[in-house]
Amino acid sequence: MAATQAGKRGRTGRFAPYALVLPGWVWLALFFVAPIASVVSMSLMTGSLGAGYSFTFEVGNYTRALGLYWEQILRSLLYGGLATLLCIAIGYPVAYWIAFKGGAYKTTYLLLVLLPFFVSFVLRTISWGFILSDNGVILGALKGLGVLPADFGVLNSATAVVFGLAYNFLPFMVLPIYAVLERMDHRVVEAAHDLYAGRVQAFVRVVLPMSLPGVFAGVIMVFIPTSADYVTATVLGGTGNTMIGKVIQTQYLVNNAYPLAAAITFVLMAVLLIGIFSYAKALGTEQVMEVQAR
């Protein structure tokens, strides 16, 4: 009697962990696996919104996606890459300064970095449209002073899109870098100074390599969404700066070309995944993870 009870309890114990992760699995299945599966199957269908779609294993959607829009895909990766580099260039010093010089006000400075997030993403981007417009607050004033020629413009250019993307995703770069720098043992930096490294050497040899996991996380968190972004390019870019996100949106919602849109989506996803994995490989994931684990 007692033995069977113990046995029962043992069995429940064995299944308990699986029961606990069940909600997680259900969530993933519903909101990740199912949509992906639906996109994949949609990308291999033919038909129209009116006549309905049928699964015909239409690989042509992919060749069309690549053939028609390779330019936008490459441009998206380029803009996303440039915005990511810009985010590192601006975000790293900011994170460094807050972590090492922020003193008692670290939290306040972090809040300031996050403050733009309290305003809607679209609204912020549109505001930049106003600020940077040809006769807006900045350019208008500078043109009035004769500093800039009358036909000078920033909007509707690749520059505007890249800077807009960098602006919108900057906190995603600052936060992970800050997190790594903040918990870095300051004695390690002192040890570098003690071993004849000046400020530059100590930074290059010790601080920077030790903060790479933060940069790694930041790059992933900025590069993926910026490459797929369509709001910024739509608002700040012109006809020559279309990014792939905009194409997908148009194909889905304007042309209702669901299979083609699904194929482009999947191509973008595949390109990003391959990019991220080769990036991790090149950087040496093991090393990155090892430092982070400490």
Binding site: D185, R187, E190, H193, Y196, G198, R205, V206, V291, R294
Partner: peptide
């Protein structure tokens, strides 16, 4: 004179080894 230009070296309590 800053530490990197002094001819003394230190062993830290937490060792402060370079983990990478």
């Amino acid at each position: 004179i800053p530490p990197h230009r002094r001819d003394v070296n230190m062993v830290f309590q937490s060792y402060a080894l370079f983990p990478h």
